[in-house]
């Protein structure tokens, strides 16, 4: 099943890596990620992630994410099939220094389908 995760994350060292690690280690595949500051006074970010859960239960994943200390809130929504098929890796984290991570580019599948290739935006890379 493909789902969209909406997560509010406190801006702490390692927070994003911890989150992404949890998603992958718990057996889910990250397909797409975007991020923007949560705004207001809070030092937090809102993340939107498309995740392929395979046969695993998204409810459990969300509970596992919620218990991460840096996570302020997490929720999931079912992703329509056509969006899942078009999904590619594009990282839009706006503050690479904050996350201190390197994301490897991955070819998206749009070119293979005859569409316009959209290179993934790599953070620090």
């Amino acid at each position: 099943m493909n789902i969209k995760l909406r997560i509010t994350l406190r801006e702490c060292e390692g927070a994003l890596i911890r989150l992404l690690g949890t998603i992958e280690r718990r057996g889910h595949a990250l397909v797409n990620l975007s991020s923007r500051p949560a705004g207001g006074q809070s030092a937090a970010r809102n993340l939107s992630l498309d995740v392929d859960c395979g046969g695993r239960n998204p409810d459990i994943l969300v509970r596992q994410i919620r218990r991460l200390y840096d996570v302020v809130e997490a929720a999931w929504y079912q992703l329509p099939e056509y969006q899942a098929a078009d999904a590619h890796l594009s990282y839009e984290a706006t503050s690479p220094a904050m996350y201190g991570m390197v994301v490897h580019r991955r070819e998206n599948n749009a070119a293979a389908e005859g569409g316009q290739a959209r290179p993934g935006v790599g953070v620090n890379g």
Partner: peptide, 15 residues
């Protein structure tokens, strides 16, 4: 900090 991430409840680097 990175190596231990999957086996800690939480972690800090104090800078």
């Amino acid at each position: 900090f990175g190596m231990s991430m999957p086996v800690v409840k939480h972690s800090f680097i104090v800078r």
